Simulated scan of single mutants.
Amino acid sequence: MKLVDIETVEPGQILGKTIFSSNGTILLSTGVQLTVYMISTLKRIGVTTIYIDNPLYRDISVDEMLSDETKRAVIHQMSEMFETLRSGKTFSSKAIGQTVDELLDDVLRNQNILIHLSDIRTADNAMFLHAMNVCMISSLLGLNMGLNMIQLKELAIGALLHDIGKLNAPEVQEGRMHHAWRGFDLLKNKREYSLLIAHVAFQHHETIDGTGVPRGLKGEEIHIYAKIAAVANIYDNLLFNSGEERILLPHEACERLNAMSGTLLDHEVLTQFMRIVSIYPNGISVKLSNRQTGVVVGQHRGLPGRPIVRIIDKDGDEAVGFKEIDLAQHPTVFIEAVLS
């Protein structure tokens, strides 16, 4: 598979990764041959990049922490929960708990896989994918930071529901303070939940230096669950909702996060995060300092900035072979740029 800009996709190319709808059903399946209509529709619903099945990179896998079944279950459950709340009813704590159990099972099983947020986001599924990603990242961080299973489940539920206060309250209208309070009020009244779950929604916009909202907490006044969720929340937003002219690439988002260490974000949580994130994901095209260009095909846990890069040898326009450069074994070669 190769990650490409939607503007470069041509009819007849094969989709390399499934795209989900807002209710968890499959919008387009892996292996479908893309048509002019499909490409146009993907552009219209806000898709900017997709994975394409390329013969030169067919053996490249994008290791996923969550299975497609778990992703469908999480997205579907979040969609159902929001519809329930919109109708004025209360959501099922048991159903959310069961969904979180499935997610945690995947995280525990695949905890050595580096975080790579590769699911294609559309205007309809963005909120649910964001919640799922914040939950997944927070769970892996909590696991690496020594939380026990009871704590992990509390953290995971809180992270999945961290933006529940946004229901019927768009950010542009009411701001972070209001949705934090609203989320806290919704969750603190769930008798089945620990109050700490509600505090994830309440505190995930607090900052270490006390400049956050809604209460201006600082340092140790902020619960560790909220510190973890804050890193996951900001990282996902930087990749998909940065508020800038373009979304940031993983290595750029990591640079932004590092600049927040000790002021906005907790230093220890960030240190752990940098150990589990894929800075240059498989399938992305890069330019090396030796002037060669290639595609990332492999990762090293603990060395996220030194992946394995495949260089295609060509005779004119025809590929005649390839070689791979393991940047962990070539310290004088580095990634100079990520190519679109």
Rank of each mutant, 00 (worst) to 15 (best):
I115R: 09
Q98L: 11
D106V: 00
V74S: 03
V100F: 07
S79G: 06
N112L: 09
V107F: 02
M78G: 06
E102R: 11
Q77W: 00
L103Q: 06
V74Y: 01
I75W: 02
K89I: 08
K89Y: 07
T99Y: 01
I96F: 02
S118F: 09
L114P: 03
S92H: 01
L104R: 04
L114R: 08
D101C: 02
M81C: 07
M78W: 03
L103F: 00
R109E: 03
S93N: 14
L114W: 07
A73E: 08
F91K: 03
K89H: 11
L114D: 04
H76T: 08
Q111V: 05
V100P: 05
S92K: 04
K89T: 12
I75Q: 06
L103C: 01
S87L: 10
S87T: 12
K89L: 15
H116R: 15
Q111H: 10
V74T: 03
D105A: 07
I96A: 03
A95D: 13
F82V: 13
A95G: 09
Q77K: 06
L108H: 07
T84W: 03
S79F: 12
I96C: 00
L117E: 15
S92E: 03
T70K: 05
T70P: 08
S93Y: 08
L117H: 07
N112V: 07
Q98V: 10
A73M: 06
F91L: 05
R109S: 04
M81K: 06
A73W: 01
D105P: 00
H116W: 15
Q98G: 03
Q98C: 11
K89M: 13
L108V: 11
K94F: 04
S118P: 12
F82D: 14
L114H: 08
D101P: 01
S92T: 06
K94G: 07
G97Q: 12
V100K: 05
T84E: 14
S92C: 08
S87I: 12
E83H: 12
E83A: 13
G88R: 15
L114S: 10
D106S: 05
A73I: 03
L117N: 14
L108D: 04
L104K: 02
G88P: 11
T90C: 13
H116A: 15
K89W: 08
D105E: 05
E102L: 08
T99D: 07
K94A: 12
I113R: 10
F91R: 09
S87F: 09
R72C: 06
A73N: 01
D105F: 00
E69K: 07
V74K: 02
S118V: 15
A95N: 11
H116P: 04
V74A: 06
E69D: 14
H116G: 12
H76N: 07
V74Q: 00
K71P: 02
V107E: 04
V107N: 00
N110G: 09
M78I: 09
H116K: 14
I115S: 08
V100G: 04
I115K: 14
F82M: 15
Q98I: 09
M78A: 08
S92P: 06
D101K: 05
D101M: 01
E102I: 01
M78L: 15
L108R: 10
K89R: 15
L85H: 13
E69N: 05
G97H: 14
K71L: 03
E102G: 05
F91H: 05
D105G: 00
K89C: 10
E80Q: 09
M81E: 09
